[in-house]
Amino acid sequence: MKQRTIEAIRAHAAAEYPREACGLIVVERGRERYVPCRNAASGTEHFVLPAEDFAAAEDLGEVVAVVHSHPDAPAMASEADLVSCEASGMPWHILSWPADDLRTIEPSGYQAPLVGRQFAHGVLDCYTLVRDWYRIERAIALPDFPRRDDWWHQGEDLYMRHYAEAGFVAVSQDQPEQAGDVILMQLRSPVPNHAAVYLGGGHMLHHLHGRLSSRDVYGGYWQEITRCVLRYQG
């Protein structure tokens, strides 16, 4: 990177601190420049770069890298950073601020494990886990859906609105029977906001906010908050 690009990244990280700053590196008329973008995340633990900001940067030139800061944290890539870098197909530059340590990661074929992955809403969350299980175990590509932070408290009923579009039908209110059944649960929310994959033998795979993804026994509390069981029909 050019020194002036690094200086622009530093200035943006300082201006956004203590929130994460995010932006894009663009080659415009043969010259490299940093394009600051908005962070649309509602919290401080991650960033969300709006699609319209990405589109605006593309209008300027070729987007060649993604940039974001880690306020008061090392520049080491998180699991969500690694997954998102793979999805973007381009390098990611991470600036620890105010420590001022800049590191770069590039796509390398990384895949998050099904069990033990870190939570990052919209990147590594309960629906991502469902999609990854179907891709790995069934070679089925489920559609992804845009979802803002805390959507279940914003009047959105995303799971119930989109499950048919994803190829699922409702088969029960509270009793999964086949491996691959998806269990929709209502966890301290006015709408179903948590999903798990039934693995058979009384076990499920799921990912709670703030915890690592895990394989747990289905029953008890989880059955009490179950609102719908879905089965993939294609």
Score class of each variant (00 low, 15 high):
Lys2Ala: 14
Gln3Pro: 09
Arg4Met: 10
Arg4Val: 13
Arg4Lys: 13
Thr5Pro: 08
Ile9Gly: 07
Ala13Ser: 15
Ala15Arg: 08
Tyr17Glu: 05
Arg19Tyr: 04
Glu20Asp: 05
Leu24Gln: 03
Leu24Lys: 04
Val26Tyr: 06
Glu28Asn: 12
Glu28Ser: 13
Arg29Gln: 14
Gly30Phe: 05
Arg31Ile: 10
Glu32Pro: 09
Glu32Tyr: 07
Cys37Val: 07
Arg38Glu: 01
Arg38Phe: 03
Ala41Tyr: 08
Phe47Met: 09
Pro50Phe: 08
Pro50Gln: 02
Ala51Thr: 14
Ala55Leu: 08
Ala55Pro: 01
Asp59Pro: 00
Asp59Leu: 10
Leu60Tyr: 07
Glu62Asp: 12
Val63Gly: 05
Val64Leu: 05
Ala65Asn: 03
Val66Glu: 08
Val66His: 09
His68Ala: 05
His70Tyr: 04
Pro71Phe: 00
Ala73Met: 12
Ala75Cys: 11
Ala75Gln: 10
Ala77Asn: 06
Ser78His: 00
Ser78Phe: 04
Ser78Leu: 07
Asp81Met: 00
Ala87Lys: 11
Ser88Thr: 12
Trp92Cys: 10
Leu95Ala: 06
Trp97Tyr: 13
Asp100Pro: 04
Asp101Pro: 08
Asp101Val: 15
Arg103Tyr: 01
Thr104Met: 14
Thr104Asn: 10
Thr104Glu: 14
Ile105Ser: 04
Glu106Tyr: 10
Glu106Gln: 15
Ala112Trp: 03
Pro113Val: 02
Pro113Gly: 01
Val115Ala: 04
Ala120Phe: 00
Gly122Leu: 04
Asp125Met: 06
Cys126Asp: 06
Thr128Ala: 15
Val130Gln: 06
Trp133Arg: 07
Tyr134Trp: 11
Glu137Met: 07
Ala139Glu: 11
Phe145Leu: 09
Phe145Gly: 07
Phe145Ser: 09
Pro146Asn: 06
Asp150Met: 14
Asp150Thr: 14
His153Phe: 10
Gln154Met: 11
Asp157Asn: 09
Leu158Tyr: 01
Tyr159Asn: 05
Arg161Trp: 00
Arg161Thr: 15
Ala164Phe: 04
Glu165Leu: 12
Glu165His: 11
Ala166Thr: 06
Ala166Met: 09
Gly167Trp: 01
Ser172Asp: 05
Asp174Asn: 13
Gln175Glu: 13
Glu177Asn: 13
Gln178Asn: 14
Gln178Leu: 14
Gly180Lys: 10
Gly180Val: 10
Gly180Ala: 09
Val182Thr: 00
Leu184Trp: 02
Gln186Gly: 03
Ser189Gly: 02
Val191Glu: 01
Val191Gly: 02
Ala196Gly: 00
Ala196Trp: 03
Tyr198Glu: 01
Tyr198Thr: 02
Leu199Pro: 09
Gly200Thr: 13
Gly201Asp: 15
His203Thr: 15
His203Pro: 00
Met204Val: 09
Leu205Tyr: 00
His206Lys: 05
His209Asn: 14
Arg211Asp: 14
Leu212Lys: 08
Leu212Thr: 05
Val217Ala: 15
Tyr218Cys: 07
Tyr218Arg: 02
Gly219Ile: 03
Gly219Asp: 03
Gly220His: 04
Trp222Ala: 13
Trp222Ile: 11
Ile225Tyr: 00
Ile225Phe: 02
Thr226Asp: 01
Arg227Phe: 04
Val229Phe: 00
Leu230His: 06
Arg231Gln: 02
Tyr232Gln: 01
Gly234Val: 08
Gly234Trp: 03
Gly234Ile: 07
